[in-house]
């Protein structure tokens, strides 16, 4: 991937989400350099404001990476993030940026190859879309 590729922000939950990224790193798997990981204590910490802020700062896509249902460290599972995810998707649609720029993934602990596959596919999809922020002259 070229260096100028638009950034993808991954909000990774500190528990299962982050272990997937660490597992990928330990296994020497590579994923697009445009990915920026933001570690959060739980996906329920992420709300529409943070997601939109990432886009405001120039992200072309945002991935929310959390635990499989039933695995949440704090027992809140998708209770909070599901609503915020839905709101953010509707707002992205209104803005005309496209709701596809936001994805929610629940992954099993330490699934490095699974993460790499998901994030690479996402990066490819974003690349094929119109740029969210046109390159500045």
């Amino acid at each position: 991937m070229s260096r100028s590729a638009a950034h993808l922000v991954v909000f990774a939950c500190n528990w299962d989400g982050l272990t997937c990224i660490e597992a990928a790193a330990q296994a020497g798997l590579s994923y697009p350099a445009s990915v920026r990981v933001v570690r959060v204590s739980c996906l329920s910490r992420v709300h529409q404001g943070l997601i939109l802020k990432a886009f405001e700062l120039g992200a072309a896509g945002v991935m929310l990476l959390g635990c499989k249902p039933g695995n949440c460290q704090f027992d809140v599972d998708a209770r909070y993030i599901a609503g915020e995810y839905e709101k953010a998707r509707m707002l992205l649609r209104l803005l005309g940026l496209g709701e596809e720029r936001l994805v929610l993934c629940h992954m099993a602990r330490s699934d490095g190859s699974g993460f790499v596959k998901q994030v690479a596919t996402f990066a490819q999809e974003i690349e094929q879309m119109q740029p969210a922020v046109p390159a500045r002259a």
């Binding site: 709300h47 404001g49 943070l50 939109l52 802020k53 886009f55 803005l95 940026l97």
Partner: peptide, 12 residues
Amino acid sequence: RGGALQALQHLM
């Protein structure tokens, strides 16, 4: 609201 409205305004 976590700055959602400010972000929306800047995006708009």
